[in-house]
Simulated scan of single mutants.
Amino acid sequence: MFLNRSHVPEESTRQTLYGIMSDDELSLEDKQTEALALGREFLGVQNGHIERADEAAGTHEVVASVGGPATLFPSGETLNRATTYCRRTMDADSPVALADAPEEGWAEDPAYEEHGLACYLGAPIFVRGESYGTVCFIDETAREDSFTASEKAFVELIARLLGRELAATRYETDLTDAHKRRSTLVEAAPDAIFIVDTETAEITDVNEAATSLTGYDGADLEGMTVFELHPTTGRDQYHHLFENLATTGDTTSTLPDGSQLELQTADGDRIPIEMSASAVELSDGRYIQGMRTGTGPRAGAIRAQSTACQCRRLGVRLSDRRALLDRRGPPHPRRGCGVHAHRRGRPLVLPSGGPATD
C-alpha cells in the first residue's frame, strides 16, 4: 500500500537537506543515507536508493538504500542495466517521473516487467561533469496524482548535492594519492632533500638520503634549524644564500663571497656540497624545499653507504657485492650500516639505477 505523503513544508525540507550535506561530522555514507531517508519521507514512497552505473559492463550497483521491503534494491545489489528505469533517466540527463507506469505506457518496459514498480522518480548524478548514476525513489503501488514540479526539483537538488559530495571525496582521495606519490618520489631521490619552514628555518621533513649525508637520524633533523647543518662561520652568508636560492631556484656550490659551500655532519666533518632550493606553498604555510648534493670524496663514500643500506632492505646480500663493498671499521653510531665503497683505494660512487663507476 502506498505510504502517506509527508506534509512537511518544502522550504523546511530543503534546509534540512542542506544541513545534512554540510555537516562535517557525517561521512559520505551517512549523508547518502540521511538524504535518501529525507527524500523518501518527503515523497511518501517505499524506497530511496542510489545506483552507480557501469555502462561498459551493462550493470548498476546499488551503493546506498533506505526503506523496504528488504528485497527491494538492497545496498550492494547489482542490477542489469537493461531492466532499470535509471537507464532512461541517465539517457535523458533529467528527472524521469512515473506516477503509474502501466497507465503511462510503460507496462512493457523491461524495468516494469522485471521489478513491477508502478511509481518512480529519479534524477541523474554527475560528478565533475561526468555521469555517475542516479538517485531514485520508488514504490510498488501506483501514485494517485503526478509528481509536482517542486517534488522533481527536490530530487534534482538531492542528486546535485550528492554529486558535489562525491566530487569532494574524490578530490580528497586524489590529493592523498598525490601526496603519497610525492612522498615516495622524495624518499627515493638519491639527493638529500630538506623541507624547511620559511618563518622559523626549522626542518620539518627529510628523506633518507638526507640522514645518510648528515649522519643525523630523521627525528633529530626534524626540529633543527637548517643553519645548524652549516659551519658557524659565515652564517650571514648562508641566510642570504637561502633567500636567493628560494627565489631563483638556482643551483650553487659557493657562498656569495665565492667560498665553498659546506655541510657540517653529526660527527663534525665538513662536506663540500651543491645546493638548490625552491619555495613551496602548502595549506599550512610557506616552505622551502632544499636539495643538497655532496661533491667530494667523503660525500661519495656516504652516497655509496646509503646505496648499500638500500640493498640490504631490498634483500640483496652485501656479501654478493664484495667486489665493490669493503667494510671500513665500526659504523658510526648514528650513521646506519656503516658500509663504504672503495676500488683501488679510491672512494667508489654507486649511482642510483646504474653500474658502479670510478
Rank of each mutant, 00 (worst) to 15 (best):
A301S: 05
T252Q: 06
R143V: 00
E199W: 10
V155Y: 01
A210Q: 07
I288W: 15
R40F: 09
R327L: 03
S94P: 06
P256E: 13
S27R: 07
Y18T: 02
D205N: 14
R81I: 05
S12R: 12
E55F: 08
V63E: 11
S131C: 09
E10L: 14
S150F: 10
C309V: 02
S306Q: 04
Y287F: 15
V8W: 01
P347S: 07
E262T: 08
T78H: 15
Q15M: 07
A308L: 02
M90V: 00
N80F: 05
C309Q: 09
L121Q: 05
S283Y: 13
R181F: 10
T198Q: 15
M21F: 13
P297H: 04
A82V: 06
E34C: 06
E61F: 01
S253H: 14
E243Q: 12
H7F: 01
I302N: 01
A142W: 00
R14F: 03
A118D: 10
S150L: 03
L28H: 06
E41K: 05
N4G: 00
P272M: 09
E34F: 07
V349R: 13
S12H: 09
T248N: 15
F137H: 14
V339K: 01
K180H: 15
D205A: 15
D191T: 14
E10G: 06
S183F: 11
A101S: 13
I288H: 05
R335S: 08
A266L: 12
D220L: 14
S319K: 01
I138G: 02
D236M: 14
R286W: 11
R160E: 14
A37T: 10
A219C: 04
Q15H: 09
L117M: 10
Q310D: 02
R335P: 03
E113G: 06
L26E: 01
T78G: 09
R322Y: 06
L241A: 07
Y287N: 00
E187V: 07
L157H: 10
D54Y: 00
G44A: 12
L255C: 12
D191Q: 11
M291S: 08
A299D: 02
A111W: 04
K180V: 08
L350Y: 01
N4L: 08
L43W: 02
P256V: 15
P351S: 07
A167Y: 05
A167K: 08
E10H: 13
Y112L: 09
F154V: 04
D145I: 04
P347N: 02
A277I: 02
T251F: 09
A308Q: 00
V66L: 04
L161H: 12
I193A: 08
G338M: 01
A277S: 12
H239R: 15
G345M: 06
R322N: 08
L282I: 15
G268I: 15
T357K: 10
I138K: 08
T233F: 14
L185K: 08
V226C: 15
D23C: 03
L213V: 05
A142C: 00
D177I: 13
N4H: 10
T89K: 01
L282G: 10
P355F: 05
I50C: 04
T134Q: 03
Y112Q: 02
L221Q: 12
L324G: 07
L245P: 06
I195S: 13
D30W: 00
F42C: 05
